[in-house]
Design a protein around this nucleic acid. Sequence first.
DNA 1: GCCGACACTCAAATCGCTTTGAAGCGTTGG
DNA 2: CCAACGCTTCAAAGCGATTTGAGTGTCGGC
Lengths: 397, 397
Amino acid sequence: MTLKELAQKLGLSPTTVSRALNGYPEVNEETRRRVAEAARLHNYRPNTQAKRLATGRAMAIGHVIPLSTRHEIVNPVFADFIAGAGEVYAQSGYDMVLSIVPDADEERAYREVKSKRSVDGVIVHGPRRIDGRIELLDALGLPFVVHGRVSTAARPYAWVDVNNQRAFERATGFLLDLGHRRIALVNGIETMDFAWRRRQGYEAALAARGLVPDPGLMVSGEMTEALGHDAARAMLARPDAPTAFVTASLLIAMGVRRALEETGLRIGRDVSVVTHDDDLGYLQNGGDEPIYTATRSSVREAGRRCAGHLIAMIEAGASMAPPGELLEAALVVGQSTGPLPGAETAIRTVPGIALPVATDARGGDGVAANHAGNGARHDAGHGARSNGLGSKPPAGD
Amino acid sequence: MTLKELAQKLGLSPTTVSRALNGYPEVNEETRRRVAEAARLHNYRPNTQAKRLATGRAMAIGHVIPLSTRHEIVNPVFADFIAGAGEVYAQSGYDMVLSIVPDADEERAYREVKSKRSVDGVIVHGPRRIDGRIELLDALGLPFVVHGRVSTAARPYAWVDVNNQRAFERATGFLLDLGHRRIALVNGIETMDFAWRRRQGYEAALAARGLVPDPGLMVSGEMTEALGHDAARAMLARPDAPTAFVTASLLIAMGVRRALEETGLRIGRDVSVVTHDDDLGYLQNGGDEPIYTATRSSVREAGRRCAGHLIAMIEAGASMAPPGELLEAALVVGQSTGPLPGAETAIRTVPGIALPVATDARGGDGVAANHAGNGARHDAGHGARSNGLGSKPPAGD
DNA sequence: GCCGACACTCAAATCGCTTTGAAGCGTTGG
DNA sequence: CCAACGCTTCAAAGCGATTTGAGTGTCGGC
């Protein structure tokens, strides 16, 4: 059933039928009703391709997923992210088109998508600290939103990111408040922007207590269970083993747990673990009571936000300043953390309910209460700070 | 840069340019070279929409992802599956378009995709034992391949599936060979076809030893870490606690591990665990030596196979009989299994190397050696059986 | 010298929609 | 009575490719 056929059946011209269906004002209400009725009756749907050709809009958003040829890992947060984005696309009538490309071909993929005009904009996944894609897309004139940020970008661009620096600063601070001093970091690959920012946060928290990060306690790699396990095994074998871990993902934390188990240590009592939690649908951090103490921020929500911004940009045309949005992670207290064994503590941690108020082994520094206050389960939560300027965020973020 | 412009620059007609670029024979080789050169120089790419309209082919494959409104879980294997499918699409020049839809709207999504003509075919995800989608798509005349099967389907249809029944029969048999008799099953939701087949396999293995499945040892639910944990906790608290678990996913197995840990039991010694392993990129079952004994089958490979079959069907037109392909899972031996404590065993399991030869506590039944033989690490592996008939597979699968 | 075959190339139609510019028609106001 | 004006509707021209059917020029055979 084409527009022409439908028009014929109705004894109208294609023009009128088109206008009637697309809600143009210059068509008689009675006619519009008739047309709508007939369209429904004959199950008419405009041919997507024809519509796109005529309007010049693809009504589609591209996601170019780099598939590293070396480690071949599909980012596990990806499924949740596109679920969030997909919701928004569906509401706005956009299609989502995915290109899985070997990372060597990534640039070519963007160029192609542009010159083929098959999408109206793209989401950039997995930004690196130094990342040529921003410039490339700017040059191509293809609207885009970055999930994350590129610290080294020269010009404003649109992004949605979690405040990774602050999240890890708080996570580390939380452990420091509990008396821990030897705190390990098991991080993602630090050429990735988010991982680098997380390390900044970790180091900042240590620095605030006058502690120097020990390179032997910092590991970075592909964020797998195996990484957590192997890193923890190695570190726990040292004479000056860490008493706490900060990890970049739930999977890593699970690996650390396995290593602890093998070593005969009890998580939350002998050794504490704080992790970042992307709040993935299939990888929940417990139910009512979190298993791991974690900085939590929903990747799915990030997907929704990215999609929303991108569509706004596309529909506004070039006139719009690129939006930037920083999402705050909540710090939720679970069963994986406790005071440094042997240190005097005022109150024992009661997961998910009370707040740990640790007496710093070296005599408290006043930051404890502050951090504890922020550690409340129902935190400011996913509160977001948004700026319409798209300027590079202050260095501290 | 459009075809017309390019033709003008070359002093040729659009026809000739189009033919030259699309490899038609009736164009002078010299001319073809000139055209190709100019196209590359001006970075010409045919406008996707125009091409699609002209050819009537969308050059795109749809994936309709149902998003359950109740449990809101995005299938974790999904990312790997589309990575596999995406590779194949890229090679063949197809786009992948995803629709994330609340499962109530699923039927509408398929109808829409059909009448809008925005894809040439679809992949069906997460088939249920009773699933109306087969009939729907048949009726719509939209080519499709099912990832999995629908046991109750009346007519042939295209599918790619793992031999779930046999995999779980072998997994259970393996534990039986080790002397275990109280074996728990922590399964996916059994309205899903794959989960139901897995239970069939589990029960068949028990039945082969004259054992009756104990409903108290069978749990099914969303395949999360929490499910594994909670199920194991509950079962282990029983007076007649299981000595072994068969689980449907690595995440469930990790949950069981956590429960064992909490209960003070040692995995692989006190309690054995065999799991199914989808060989996901980000959730590897150890490196050289598997952590969990598992039936392993790559979801990514399944994605590739599905994509390949679908493209073949699309390009062959309606003339082709729907292909069906059954992939066999390998049984790899890891550190999570061992003989029933207290039973006499001939040889202790050496993970990944030797084969367990258990003396059945009740006096062996001859099946042990057989199963042990199949348990070899470098098994038949991903060997596949393919039939060009697309008939419903024999009931035993 | 004429004709058909062959090798190229092209003009124009087509795909199914949107959109521009204009026309039909009944009503008003000067 | 005629021009002007809304309100509707329409014919036709795009959008940018593919594809049909026709046209040109060259060559060999008779």
